[in-house]
Simulated assay, not measured.
Amino acid sequence: MGSEECRDVVKLSPDRLSLQEVVDSVSSTSCGAISVFIGTTRGDVLEDRKVIGLEYEAYEPMVQSELSILCADIRARWPSVTHISVHHRLGWVALGEASVVIAISSPHRHDGQQAVQFCINKLKASAPIWKKEVYDTKDVTWKENAECPWAQAKAEWGGADV
C-alpha cells in the first residue's frame, strides 16, 4: 500500500452530517475507490402514525471503543483498506437527514464496498447507540436494531422479552 499511514475517523455529533467532510477524511492518492453508505431517516407509517423524526442517544466512550475494534476487524478482513470514517448523528434527526455516514477508501472498489456493508451491519449490532421513533401523534417508540444479539434472541423466543 505504500508509505501512507492508515487513518480511522469516528465522530459522534448533534450537528447535521456532511458527506463531503466524511469523503474528504478518507481521500487518498493511493486509492482509486471511496465507498460510501448514507443511512437516512424515512417517514414510515405504522398503525396510522407517521414517523416525523428520530432521536439518537449513545454511550459515547463505549461507541468509540466498539468502533475502534470494528475498524481493526475491517483491516484484518480487508488489508487493502486505507482509511475508514464513521460519522453518526446524535439527538434529533429529521426526515430525509443522514443518521450515519460511512466512507472507506481502498485501491480498488471491491474491498471497500464489502467493508462498508460489513461496517454498517456490525455498527448496528454492537455500538451502544439507541434510536427513538417520534410520530406525528407525539407518541414515541424505542427501536432495536434487528442485528443486535438480544433482538435475535428475542425473535427466537417468539418475541418475548429476554
Results as ranks from 00 to 15, higher is better:
69 I>Q: 13
111 D>Q: 12
79 P>H: 03
104 I>W: 04
43 G>A: 11
145 N>P: 02
116 V>P: 00
101 V>W: 00
25 S>V: 08
80 S>I: 06
152 Q>W: 01
123 L>R: 02
40 T>C: 12
29 T>D: 15
149 P>L: 04
60 E>Q: 15
53 G>N: 10
52 I>K: 11
51 V>I: 04
71 C>V: 14
92 W>D: 04
85 S>Y: 06
81 V>I: 11
78 W>I: 02
37 F>W: 14
118 F>S: 03
45 V>R: 01
89 R>Q: 08
92 W>Y: 11
67 L>F: 04
23 V>E: 11
88 H>C: 08
72 A>V: 05
82 T>A: 12
141 T>H: 12
29 T>M: 15
138 K>R: 10
24 D>G: 04
60 E>D: 15
116 V>W: 08
68 S>A: 13
132 K>Y: 06
90 L>G: 00
106 S>P: 00
65 S>E: 15
118 F>D: 07
82 T>E: 12
70 L>M: 12
25 S>M: 04
130 W>L: 02
78 W>L: 04
93 V>R: 05
51 V>E: 03
58 A>G: 07
123 L>M: 15
123 L>E: 02
88 H>K: 06
83 H>C: 08
85 S>W: 05
138 K>H: 13
68 S>C: 09
62 M>I: 13
25 S>N: 05
117 Q>M: 09
149 P>S: 05
129 I>L: 07
134 V>C: 14
139 D>Y: 09
60 E>K: 14
110 H>E: 14
129 I>D: 03
154 K>A: 02
132 K>S: 13
32 G>N: 06
99 S>G: 15
72 A>C: 13
38 I>Q: 13
98 A>I: 03
101 V>D: 03
43 G>V: 04
88 H>D: 01
136 D>C: 12
24 D>I: 03
125 A>I: 10
34 I>A: 11
103 A>T: 01
75 R>E: 01
41 T>Y: 06
128 P>K: 15
46 L>S: 01
83 H>Q: 07
48 D>M: 06
84 I>Y: 04
116 V>R: 02
82 T>W: 03
50 K>W: 13
143 K>E: 09
64 Q>Y: 15
56 Y>L: 15
115 A>G: 10
88 H>L: 02
69 I>W: 04
31 C>N: 05
115 A>C: 09
75 R>W: 14
47 E>R: 07
139 D>S: 12
84 I>D: 00
54 L>V: 06
95 L>I: 12
58 A>Y: 11
141 T>I: 11
86 V>R: 01
150 W>S: 09
117 Q>K: 13
72 A>E: 12
70 L>D: 03
40 T>K: 08
96 G>V: 14
89 R>G: 05
115 A>M: 10
91 G>S: 09
25 S>L: 09
72 A>F: 07
78 W>C: 02
113 Q>G: 10
21 E>K: 08
156 E>L: 03
115 A>F: 10
53 G>T: 01
119 C>V: 03
34 I>D: 08
115 A>P: 02
131 K>Q: 10
132 K>W: 05
156 E>A: 02
68 S>E: 15
117 Q>T: 14
37 F>Y: 14
133 E>S: 10
80 S>R: 04
81 V>R: 06
146 A>P: 01
132 K>F: 08
104 I>T: 04
54 L>F: 09
47 E>N: 09
51 V>L: 08
129 I>A: 07
68 S>T: 14
151 A>T: 11
47 E>F: 06
103 A>L: 10
54 L>N: 08
30 S>L: 15
